[in-house]
Simulated assay, not measured.
Amino acid sequence: MTYVSNHLSLVEQHRQHADSISERTAQFLAAGGNVAQVPSLAGNPIPPKRSAKIDPETILKRRKPAITRAERNALRKLAEAL
């Protein structure tokens, strides 16, 4: 049993383009061109290291912690007493 690839027509569509690339490569090499193989680039660059310096201005801008459940209940009782 033989199977026909769905992508065969796609291959045939691009064959003319591939032949053109092959022809131009042959012309380049015949004219004295040189093809060099170089190592590939790394996938993801290493992120920069974090600074150990802490800006005093940043510390002052930090959010205050939320009030606790007990503090919220105490405020509610005070508001009801008014």
Results as ranks from 00 to 15, higher is better:
M1H: 07
M1P: 04
T2I: 08
T2E: 11
V4P: 00
V4D: 14
V4L: 09
S5R: 13
H7S: 11
H7M: 12
L8E: 14
L8N: 06
L8W: 03
S9F: 03
L10H: 11
L10T: 14
V11F: 05
R15I: 01
R15Y: 03
Q16W: 01
Q16I: 05
H17R: 12
H17Y: 04
A18R: 05
D19Y: 02
S20P: 00
I21G: 00
E23D: 15
R24N: 01
R24Q: 09
T25K: 01
L29T: 07
A30H: 02
A31N: 04
N34K: 12
N34A: 14
N34H: 14
N34G: 12
N34W: 06
V35D: 01
A36P: 00
A36S: 10
Q37Y: 13
Q37F: 04
V38G: 00
V38Y: 03
V38C: 02
P39Q: 04
P39V: 15
S40W: 03
L41H: 10
L41F: 15
L41R: 05
A42K: 10
G43S: 07
P45C: 10
P45G: 07
P45S: 11
I46R: 15
P47W: 04
P48C: 14
P48G: 15
K53M: 08
D55T: 07
E57G: 15
R62V: 15
R63Y: 10
P65E: 09
A66F: 04
I67W: 08
T68E: 04
T68R: 09
R69P: 02
R69I: 06
N73C: 01
L75H: 06
L75F: 07
K77Y: 06
K77W: 02
L78F: 07
L78V: 05
A79E: 03
A79I: 11
A79P: 00
E80F: 10
L82D: 13
